[in-house]
Simulated assay, not measured.
Amino acid sequence: MPASLPLTKYHQIYLVLREQLQEGRFVHGLPGELELTRQFGVGRVTVRRALEQLVEEGLIVREAGRGTRPTTRAEQGIKPTASADAAHTTTRLSGLLENIVSVSRSTSVKVLDWRLIHASAEIAAALQIPEGAPLRKAVRRRSASAGPVSHITTYVPEALVQGFGRRELAHKPILQLLEESGIELGRARQTVSARQADAQVAAELQVAVGTALLSVRRLVYDSHDRPVQLLHGLYRPDRYEYQMELSQVGAIDARIVAKEILP
């Protein structure tokens, strides 16, 4: 584990294992403590503390004589809808898509990751697919002239990824690529909240670990009301703002504004 990161070793291990759990890597159970100590080059006490943190958050179950496994969807109490403690918005995707494409033209994208994973309980519930189903995970960093703006992680069912890959992701938003592949987009449900930057995101966005970031969770549906994309976006609030215009009671027109800060 990198000694230069301003995080305890157990917390670094916890962050790595949490991400791997979200990607569905441990369908058949987590490695044992001794194997994890070899993988991370730390002592058993450090690994045990990381595992205890995952247990406290309800992400894994440790059973004597049977090892450690991810919790099931039922054990986590996961529902397809977003949590009720954040601001929710259901938008008309046509106008939202136009704004996303408009913002993309004024920024550049670096594709950090593009690979096949298996749906965790949480992601499977959101996308309404079986747990362990194949997904494409894309991680991108978007930058403006002032520097990094956002760190975006997107999940799309593998069956919907047709005719595009890492190269196309560097030039077009995934929603646009989905439309071009024949998917008719419908609505989107968003959750807007806040989150602190962990070590990996902080490095990409060039901020200190623990910096408050704008967090957007977007679940996109097609015209048949089937989920086609789950997005988790983290944005620097000094370079990005999210605006919603309420045109009339009961109707919401969302506008996204990328705000550049001069050096």
Rank of each mutant, 00 (worst) to 15 (best):
G67F: 13
T91I: 07
A119W: 11
R142C: 05
L97W: 08
R141K: 14
I100Q: 15
I78W: 03
A84M: 14
P80R: 09
S106I: 14
G58W: 08
I78E: 04
P148E: 15
A133L: 06
Q76L: 04
G95Y: 07
R105E: 14
S143M: 11
A146T: 12
S108K: 14
K137C: 05
E75Q: 10
V156C: 04
K110I: 15
I129F: 15
V61D: 04
T153K: 03
E63V: 03
E131Q: 05
G65I: 09
S104H: 10
S108E: 04
S94L: 07
A82V: 00
R140L: 03
H118F: 06
G147K: 10
G147T: 13
R136L: 11
P130F: 10
E122G: 01
L59S: 15
P70T: 12
V103E: 08
L97N: 10
D113P: 01
R141H: 14
S106W: 06
R105G: 03
D85Y: 06
D113T: 00
V101N: 00
G65K: 07
E122S: 02
L96Y: 12
G132P: 00
A146Y: 12
G147I: 15
T91W: 03
E75W: 00
D85S: 12
P130M: 13
G67M: 04
L96P: 02
E98R: 04
A121G: 14
L96R: 11
V111M: 02
G95M: 03
R136N: 06
R105S: 10
V61M: 01
A82W: 06
V109D: 01
T107H: 11
E122C: 02
I117E: 05
E131S: 04
S102N: 12
L135T: 13
G95E: 02
R140A: 01
P70M: 09
G67R: 06
T68C: 05
R140E: 01
A124W: 04
K110Y: 07
R140S: 03
L135V: 03
P70H: 06
T90F: 04
A133M: 05
A138N: 00
A64F: 05
H88K: 03
Q76P: 02
A121S: 11
L116G: 11
A138V: 01
T153E: 08
R115G: 07
S102E: 08
Q128G: 03
V101L: 08
G67Q: 02
E131H: 00
A146V: 09
P130E: 10
V139T: 09
K110E: 12
P70S: 06
E98S: 04
E131F: 04
A126G: 12
V156R: 00
A74R: 08
V111L: 03
T71I: 06
A119L: 11
P148M: 09
G58E: 10
T72Y: 03
A87R: 11
T72L: 01
G58Y: 12
R105K: 11
I129K: 15
E98H: 06
G58C: 07
T154G: 05
Q128Y: 06
P130Q: 15
A86G: 03
L116R: 13
P148A: 14
P130D: 15
V139K: 03
P80D: 07
T91M: 07
R62A: 13
A64I: 09
A125G: 10
Q128M: 15
A74E: 13
R142K: 03
A125D: 08
